[in-house]
Design a protein around this nucleic acid. Sequence first.
DNA 1: ATACATGCAAACAATTTGCATATTA
DNA 2: TAATATGCAAATTGTTTGCATGTAT
Lengths: 151, 151
Amino acid sequence: MNKNEALILLRAKGFKHTDKREDILELFEESGGYLSAKEIQTALKDAYPGISFDTIYRNLSLFKKLLILEETELDGEKVFQFHCTEHHHHHLICLRCGKTKTIEVCPMQDLSKLDPDFKVTGHKFEIYGYCKDCQEELRRSHVKTERAGVH
Amino acid sequence: MNKNEALILLRAKGFKHTDKREDILELFEESGGYLSAKEIQTALKDAYPGISFDTIYRNLSLFKKLLILEETELDGEKVFQFHCTEHHHHHLICLRCGKTKTIEVCPMQDLSKLDPDFKVTGHKFEIYGYCKDCQEELRRSHVKTERAGVH
DNA sequence: ATACATGCAAACAATTTGCATATTA
DNA sequence: TAATATGCAAATTGTTTGCATGTAT
């Protein structure tokens, strides 16, 4: 799912095209990963100083219902990203910037019958860490901190 | 970790042995799986009609700090179970009763370098479904429902 | 006796809802 | 215009905190 598909789906279902909706979807397109309600509010408050959390929550929940977005929990925070429709896969998730990268490996394929008595209905496999850019950033700020600590 | 180890650890760290603490730990021992604050309150309100959520939350958070319990998110609900100390492993989690069963397979072992640019710091692998008992229960109540629906 | 534990009430944060108003189709 | 979207304020839920009191060591 992406912004354009989402806008088409919204129209098809009789929901209206508003600037805020478009901008929220735009954010997800730019981010390419997970965003929380708070991150959305922060990102949009320049364009819409009075934007309210109700609107953000209502739209997130609408988008979720329409399967435009999917929701996960990251570090105790509820976060959303575009729903992945094509095929089943998993993600590398950067703990600093929230960007995700798809990996095509699914551990369940090899584990079909681990326990014959347990009826499997779903699974979650997520890999956490730091993307290349954030590793750079962290190294940089760490060096800075170390220097500051010398004196 | 289990109840007795936990009680010993509490004493060793200078925390007191109270009936409520013991009963909370007992619940985790009986359950053998995940429990939420609400489930604990429900289970203990016969023995302690006035038990407050503050006490439960304070104890859960203490237990977590002492590594007696570990926390996860299950279906948007925060749940706890005894911390697994011995070795790294994953769980089959029953969506009905919350019981967990350890599996000794870890998908990360085979995936060490999926993406050389991404620095992996952790992962989550959980398998959801229904344990044998709950499959029975669900089948039973489903049959009952169907019969009720006939007339 | 002293430190830790608990209950109460209040504070908080995240999210949801009712209602009046504004906006899109 | 008719239906949906939004903001506001208030309600709800889950969780945390300050303070006075109770209890284990």
